[in-house]
Design a protein around this nucleic acid. Structure first.
Length: 430
RNA sequence: GUGGGUAUAGUUCAGUGGCAGAACGCCAGACUGUGGCUCUGGAUGUCGUGGGUUCGACCCCCACUACCCACCCCA
């Protein structure tokens, strides 16, 4: 239809039966979160622009060029409007809520999870949308509640391994690194800049640019010719202070003990400014260029940089779109088919059909109601197409005798049952 | 923001400078209350949009737009 209104660029409709897979994912995820004592938090999709500038970082691509942001209408003529933004990620919002609602007053560590849309104004491609969905969790609290403990990092990672296994995701890889504290990172950055000065001219054009804008990113380069040079550069782990080193070691020790396989990748750098210490990514093949299915890490200084109390934390975000995509490549989750298609037969039978449908649905039987203008042949044909398990014929004979023709559309077998026995014939035995 | 590809029926895609096609799907029929299989028939398109070349353009040329893939970056 030329000229009709279409979904805006980078957004899309999620339709049945794909939504079944989304619901499956969310149901599994919620159950896992329950077992690990995480509780749902819902923060606004719309936030003050400054929130992201101060947390994610002004210099990051996300904030500098990928945000949907605009100046809101002024409340009074003398005032200026507030700058609003659609959230590009959810950690900042959760930490803002933590501070605003004084959640540090609650006992122990706060363990939140969220499921919801995020927005980034990027060029869409496979596994990347302007409105995309993240499933994430955050553990945050005062240091005295144990929020800095490496045990928390390990537990979160172990939960993620469980989550992916429970979803039936095969062959995931956990890549792990420590990016140190802010001070470590700064020293490393300087060392990197110094080392790059001599060799950067031999590297690809992208790296030459990164060497200036964000040296850490050079480590991420995938150009084969650059690899030997990158190998010769300083390594992050050489710059960790004693505390960070011990923390990282403990995380690895616990993971090994509980049997979660991981790969140390000391070139793993994450794009958001707030990350400290443990940083990780779970990757999966078959996603095209977007092989990261989830990413996360620790953010010990984030709360303070947003004006809150010391509240170290760790969290992650799963790309739900990408998760669903990998699931659909492996196995399809079909919707449970409807139990009964009621085929009203003959004039006036719509009334009887509606009565019966109401009764059956009260007994938890799922029902599609046909139309009495259809001939039986067409009714059964339609019933087949809807995937209904049974067809129930409702005609003059049935009403007068109280005995209904119930046809199993899978086997073709047809039986006669009394009205009140219908549910027990079609519902799975318990 | 940059590069490449694509755009024809509901869907997946063929196609030729001279009447618009297939498969699947959809609708109807094969004698009145029995589906799936089979058979028969049918509908559906401004050939992405706007220009240009031509006697004639779905086809050739130009521009635009959208979508897809990739880069950048990220979930």
């Amino acid at each position: 239809m030329a000229g009709s209104i279409k979904a805006v660029r980078g957004t899309r409709d999620l339709l049945p039966p794909e939504t079944e897979t989304w619901n499956f994912v969310e149901a599994v995820v919620r159950e896992v979160f329950r077992v690990y004592n995480f509780h749902e938090i819902r923060t606004p999709i719309l936030e003050d622009l400054q929130l992201f500038q101060r947390s994610v970082g002004e210099e990051t691509d996300i904030v500098s060029k990928e945000m949907f942001a605009w100046e809101d209408r002024a409340r009074a003529q003398s005032e200026k409007g507030q700058w609003l933004a659609l959230r590009p990620e959810n950690t900042a919002g959760v930490v803002r809520a933590y501070i605003e609602n004084k959640l540090w007053e609650r006992p122990g560590l706060q363990r939140f999870y969220y499921i919801g849309p995020q927005f980034r104004r990027e060029r869409p491609q496979k596994g990347r949308y302007r409105q995309f969905y993240q499933i994430g969790a955050e553990v945050i609290g005062p240091p005295t509640a144990g929020s800095e403990s490496p045990a928390v990092d390990a537990e979160v990672l172990e939960m993620l391994a469980t989550l992916l296994d429970r979803l039936g995701i095969q062959h995931w890889i956990l890549e792990l690194n420590s990016v140190g504290c802010a001070a470590d990172r700064q020293r490393f950055n300087e060392a990197l800049r110094a080392a790059l000065k001599d060799v950067v001219h031999k590297m690809c054009a992208d790296c030459q640019r990164r060497a200036v804008t964000n040296p850490l990113r050079v480590l991420d380069c995938k150009v084969p010719e650059d690899q030997p040079i990158i190998e010769s550069l300083p390594k992050m782990n050489e710059f960790l202070d004693e505390g960070c080193r011990a923390h990282f070691e403990e995380v690895r020790k616990i993971l090994t003990a509980v049997g979660v396989p991981f790969k140390i990748n000391n070139r793993l750098v994450r794009g958001l400014d707030y990350y400290t210490r443990t940083a990780f990514e779970f990757t999966h093949g078959g996603l095209g260029a977007q092989n990261a299915i989830l990413g996360g890490g620790r953010y010990d200084g984030l709360s303070e940089s947003l004006g809150g109390p010391a509240a170290p934390g760790i969290g992650f975000a799963i790309g739900e779109d990408r998760l669903v995509m990998t699931l659909q490549e492996t196995a399809g989750t079909a919707a449970r088919s409807v139990d009964i298609y009621i085929a009203p037969l003959g004039t006036g039978m719509n009334v009887e059909a509606a009565r019966l449908a109401r009764e059956l649905r009260r007994e938890s039987v799922s029902v599609i109601v046909g139309d009495d203008s259809f001939r039986l042949k067409k009714s059964l044909e339609t019933a087949s197409k809807t995937g209904a398990r049974y067809a129930l014929i409702v005609g003059e004979n049935e009403i007068s005798s109280g005995q209904f023709a119930l046809k199993n559309l899978g086997t073709g077998e047809q039986i006669t049952v009394a009205r009140n026995e219908i549910p027990s014939k079609v519902l799975p035995a318990k």
